[in-house]
Computed example of a mutant assay.
Amino acid sequence: MTEPIEQRIAKAMAELESVQAAVARAEERLAGACATVRSRDRAVEVTVGPGGELTGLKFLDDKYRSMNAAQLAASVMEAVGRGRAQMAREVMDVFGPLAAPSTEVPELRGVDVDWDRIFGSALSAEAGGHGRRGGNRLLDEIHEDTDDARTRGRGRS
């Protein structure tokens, strides 16, 4: 026996209200979210907001003074790419479940979210390219200096 249309509509409306409330909670959670990331060479630290925007930039331990312009730019770009990737993952973790099909209302099949279209290069940074697009020679200038970090008594993060 099929469920009456009124019951199906009531379930769908309840599900919709539940999803709307969950979206509001997710938006509130992400409103103050940020990712703070250091470059691999530990020369810069950046803070990135939930929309991928750069909200903070620090040059650490005067290391930037011994870097040429290309190296410093590469450190900033690498850290920003990693910060954007971290925020993209967090946004996907928060909103991903809200796009899933309804378990209560089969007619609500969920939403197919194109995360690549939304986050673009931020996701390519996460995949190992660190925001690298073909021909970006600035990133070739990054050099890790793990001995320097150890001699100052700091652990790697």
Rank of each mutant, 00 (worst) to 15 (best):
D116W: 11
R82V: 12
W115C: 06
P106D: 05
L30K: 09
D145P: 07
R65Q: 14
A85R: 01
G128S: 09
V44K: 12
R25E: 11
E3K: 13
L139S: 05
W115M: 07
P106N: 03
G153W: 07
E15K: 02
A31H: 11
L123A: 07
I118N: 01
M13C: 10
D93L: 13
G51Y: 09
A14K: 14
M77W: 03
A69G: 03
L72A: 12
G120F: 13
E90C: 08
A35S: 12
W115E: 02
R89P: 00
G96R: 06
G81S: 04
R154Q: 08
E90W: 07
P101Y: 08
C34D: 04
I9Q: 04
V37N: 00
I9C: 01
N136Y: 05
R137W: 08
E53S: 15
N68A: 05
T55K: 08
R150G: 00
A100M: 09
A70I: 14
G32S: 12
G52K: 02
M1T: 13
F95A: 01
Q7P: 00
R29E: 15
G51T: 14
A70L: 11
E3I: 14
E78S: 01
G135R: 10
A10V: 03
A125M: 03
G129H: 12
L60H: 05
E3T: 15
R150I: 02
R117P: 00
R40C: 08
A31Y: 03
E3D: 12
A73I: 01
N136R: 08
V94W: 11
I142C: 08
R150K: 06
R84T: 00
V37S: 01
Q20D: 11
H143P: 00
M67I: 12
A22M: 01
G83F: 03
G128H: 06
R117Q: 11
P97I: 08
G134P: 10
L16M: 09
H143Q: 15
N136I: 03
A85H: 14
A88K: 09
E53I: 12
A88G: 07
G32L: 06
A21V: 02
G120A: 14
R133W: 06
K11L: 13
R117V: 05
A12I: 09
T146L: 11
A69P: 02
D93R: 15
M1Y: 12
D114I: 02
T36M: 04
M67T: 10
R132I: 08
H143C: 07
G56M: 01
Y64L: 06
A70H: 07
V48M: 10
P97R: 05
Q7W: 05
